[in-house]
Amino acid sequence: MDVEGEAARVLAELRAQADPVRAEYEKRYLKSDFVHIGVTVPALRKVALSTVKAKPARDELLALAETFWGVTDEGRPVHEARMAAIEVLAKRVALLEPRDMGLAERFIRDSASWVYVDHLAEKSVGALVVRYPDLATTLDAWVADPYMWIRRAAVLALLPGVRTGNPDLGRIDRYGDALIAEREFFIRKALGWVLRELSKKDPAWVAAWVEPRVGTISGVTLREAVRHLPPAEVARIRA
Rank of each mutant, 00 (worst) to 15 (best):
residue 1 M to P: 11
residue 2 D to T: 04
residue 4 E to F: 07
residue 9 R to M: 12
residue 9 R to N: 11
residue 16 A to T: 07
residue 19 D to H: 00
residue 20 P to A: 11
residue 25 Y to D: 13
residue 30 L to D: 05
residue 36 H to S: 07
residue 38 G to S: 09
residue 38 G to D: 10
residue 40 T to A: 14
residue 42 P to R: 06
residue 42 P to F: 06
residue 43 A to S: 10
residue 43 A to C: 01
residue 45 R to G: 02
residue 48 A to P: 13
residue 48 A to D: 13
residue 50 S to L: 08
residue 50 S to D: 13
residue 61 L to K: 11
residue 73 D to P: 00
residue 73 D to A: 13
residue 75 G to W: 12
residue 78 V to K: 10
residue 82 R to C: 05
residue 91 K to I: 01
residue 103 L to K: 10
residue 107 F to L: 15
residue 107 F to S: 03
residue 112 A to L: 09
residue 113 S to D: 14
residue 121 A to P: 12
residue 121 A to W: 12
residue 121 A to G: 10
residue 124 S to D: 09
residue 128 L to T: 12
residue 130 V to I: 02
residue 134 D to V: 14
residue 134 D to T: 14
residue 135 L to V: 03
residue 139 L to N: 06
residue 141 A to W: 11
residue 144 A to F: 02
residue 150 I to W: 01
residue 150 I to Y: 00
residue 153 A to Y: 01
residue 165 G to F: 05
residue 165 G to E: 04
residue 166 N to W: 00
residue 167 P to E: 06
residue 168 D to F: 04
residue 170 G to A: 14
residue 180 I to D: 13
residue 181 A to W: 08
residue 181 A to E: 15
residue 185 F to S: 01
residue 191 L to K: 01
residue 192 G to C: 10
residue 192 G to I: 07
residue 195 L to H: 08
residue 198 L to E: 05
residue 201 K to H: 11
residue 219 G to R: 15
residue 220 V to A: 07
residue 224 E to R: 09
residue 224 E to P: 06
residue 227 R to Y: 03
residue 231 P to Q: 07
